[in-house]
Nucleic acid binder design. Sequence first.
RNA 1: CGGGGCAUAGCGCAGCCCGGUAGCGCGCUUGGUUUGGGACCAAGAUGUCGCAGGUUCAAAUCCUGCUGCCCCGACCA
Length: 570
Amino acid sequence: MKMSSLLAPTLREVPAEAEVESHKLMLRAGLIRKVAAGIYNYLPLGLKVIRKVETIVREEMNRAGAQEVLMPNAVPAELWKESGRWDKYGDLLLKFKDRKEAEFCFGPTHEEVITFMVRSDVRSYRQLPINLYQIQTKFRDEIRPRFGLMRGREFIMKDAYSFHETEESLDAEYKNMRAAYCRIFERCGLDYRIVGADNGDMGGSGSEEFMVLAKSGEDEVLSCSCGYGSNVEAARALPVRCDDVPEAQQGIEETPTPGKKTIEEVSAFLKKLPKQAIKTLIYTADNTPVMVLMRGDHEVNEVKLKNVLKAATLALADDATVKKITGADVGFAGPVGMKDIRVVADESVQFIKNGYTGANRTDFHLVNVKYGRDFMAPELFDLRITRKGDMCPACGQKALESHRGIEVGHIFKLGTKYSDSMNAQFLDRESASRPFIMGCYGIGIGRTAAAAIEQSHDEYGIVWPLSLAPFMVLVTPATPNDPVQMEIAAKLYISLREQGIDALLDDRDERMGVKLKDADLIGFPYKIIAGKTAAQGMVEVKSRRGAIKENVEIAKAVDMIRQSIQEKKY
RNA sequence: CGGGGCAUAGCGCAGCCCGGUAGCGCGCUUGGUUUGGGACCAAGAUGUCGCAGGUUCAAAUCCUGCUGCCCCGACCA
């Protein structure tokens, strides 16, 4: 390929829309262009990178025994109604109608379709286990698409689904996929961590995320040197005692706190610590009010709460509901004397000493409250948001560290959520019908490419991992229109291609500076420059990461690069 | 959905307050001089000033509505 005919429109200036480095560089290097919010054209260089990621994913999935299929983008509503997600998935689902007014959605994920596929044609335990995957364009009408390919609305995803007779079989495949994912992200040259995660609306029993560590990551990852790692949303928290409050437990009293509503206001007014507060929140879970108790300095993790309550919807109750339940204005709710409402508390609440909480009477709080003495023992759960510095829930010894991560892969044990709701069954060896036990495994293809840039770039441009670079080598004459240099460059280009090394010839009539800036921006791992000394048989070989910067005999240049590629060092 | 902001040439921006011939830099085209890290000179081309109404002799500029986009939050594999 000649650079003069390649559509690689590099930009000197950064388009105003881009915020993070991968997005800026993908635009500047001419990899992608925006078509609409969260929707992109992939230009030749961008597509080449995407294909490289796809190839790695495909090779490793096939090696792991999965079979590739392809499902439709347009999915009939009836499948999504069967699973119950037509309504539950909400506005993320892009819905439309065909000419007969039949409803469809653009598939944002394909559990329904794959379940349909398998229930139609897999009947016997003899056909299990089976793992089917596709690499395909998804559409999710994200509330706020951003960061280029990192969070698009239309994006390319590899999604795999496995079907099993037993939990043991699912466990084995889950491990198999986990190992395949490790190979994939290693081959992509990424620094990643595997962390515990919440299943979200996917349902099921367990899941882990593959996080690429990068400052711009949208997720917070908590980790410990003992090996524990978790998305902050799912991180477990150990109950915290209150041993450092020296005072002796005293008797409960009501005290006026006029107009003091927030933890800060009340604790300052009563001269108590925020961690002595019993924060009382009223939530509405599936239309039923629930009282939630937290230590004053802790935050509710609504994902945990939702899971504990087994609620489909969860939101803080409105002021009127709070008033009706507590008989007081918002800000004065407390658990003492509460009846006829479900009360759940974070585990740390039981250790609060001389606590204070709302008196369920406007402008009054109760002080010196003790769990178990002054209010009914409610249900205790881990409900708080785990924070950096908290004790590791796994080893209990060390404080958790916090990092930012980009979620490039997610593996789930789904169980029978979809096979149950969609009535997908097989016959086991006793001729009994049983629902398939399912797993599902996703990788964001474009996001993986973006993560690679996020993790590896410099002030000049992209520094590709060898495995993802759109071209391996750029060959260029230093002086345009110098026939000797051009001829040598062209010969080198041809011999690189003959050796199976993907090279690009920069035949443009541009000054050296322009060509080199473009080369660094696009991020070719290697450059060969045929310059002044080319006529004497010498060319310059340079690598993007700086390991190689040498004048060598023309005949040796190709070998040098080939060897460097083999050693995977440049 | 809440808060904030933007919309003028391919890209980055000025002009808007105070209404009166639409500009700058980069890029693009042509010619010339250059040629090892984003050259220089000269001559050019390119705009429904996001859309629709309104006010006015006159609207990029003032008013109203709409749309698109960006940022923060909420939400989200």
